[in-house]
Design a protein around this nucleic acid. Sequence first.
DNA 1: GGCCAACGTTGGTTATCCCAACATAGCAGC
DNA 2: GCTGCTATGTTGGGATAACCAACGTTGGCC
Lengths: 152, 152
Amino acid sequence: MADTDHALQPPARLRELASWQANKVSTLGARLTAQRMPLSARADFAVLAALEEYGALSQAEIGRRLGLDRNDVSGILTRLEGGRQVDRQADPANRRRNVVTLTAAGQQHLEELQRHADAVQAELLAGLDAAERQQLQSLLAKLLDSHNPQPA
Amino acid sequence: MADTDHALQPPARLRELASWQANKVSTLGARLTAQRMPLSARADFAVLAALEEYGALSQAEIGRRLGLDRNDVSGILTRLEGGRQVDRQADPANRRRNVVTLTAAGQQHLEELQRHADAVQAELLAGLDAAERQQLQSLLAKLLDSHNPQPA
DNA sequence: GGCCAACGTTGGTTATCCCAACATAGCAGC
DNA sequence: GCTGCTATGTTGGGATAACCAACGTTGGCC
């Protein structure tokens, strides 16, 4: 009912804040995601996707590409390594670093997670038409690019 | 340097996900906010703003308007009540409910938090021009409106 | 009066983001 | 070669938000 829809509106001071709006969209995305897979799989997906696109990476570089704290990267890789989805080895050329690579099982899991991600995206953006989706994502990308990620 | 800027790009599979983009924008907003005030003040701001705009509200209604879990609302109000920024009393008409009202100190704190929020917003959106900001917020609002908040 | 729903509280978990400190390794400058 | 600095990864932790379950009280309906 229109009346009840209106009654539940947040205050204008919040509606005008892009950070609040983005947070709510993010929370919606998380809620839709949780219906399909454990929430921790989002971090897994990010790491697996980076390895697929860029090939072997150091942990530090994974962190820089994904905007993640390096000890969070360490924990994510421990989990993925335990599930045989990545392999990590000390870099012989520079023993401060680990080289992380995607395994075949990891690639398969990435494809499965991508299907979930696509379903979430479709449901999340269902209220926008194709041009609006394109425009929203383009503006979000522009905003993010204007704040370059800092190395961890 | 352009070369290093390009090198730090996240993978395409992430860049295409609006929920990932929204999460990153939200995290940026949090980071900028943390430079100005404790992060918990964001929740305070939301509650104070709702009370200012809609007058006395029950805890349940605060939760519905802000998309918050009702035991999180309880905790936030405990903190605000302790700081004398809100007042809460059992509703004589329906003793299942508390009626929550904004105090003068709460109104003052709201104004102070609004100044911080404005500064964060300006910095967050600095990379977009006025038309782009308007458009981004309009699209985010449309997306959010298409997913009506569920009562807690 | 029994049942169901609403409201608020208490007690908790999970995930993300962030900070600090430490050990090891690599490199440049002297 | 020694020193100082930076890079990398790990261990250990805290803060915040979002979420879940159970309980007690209250109100309304049949």
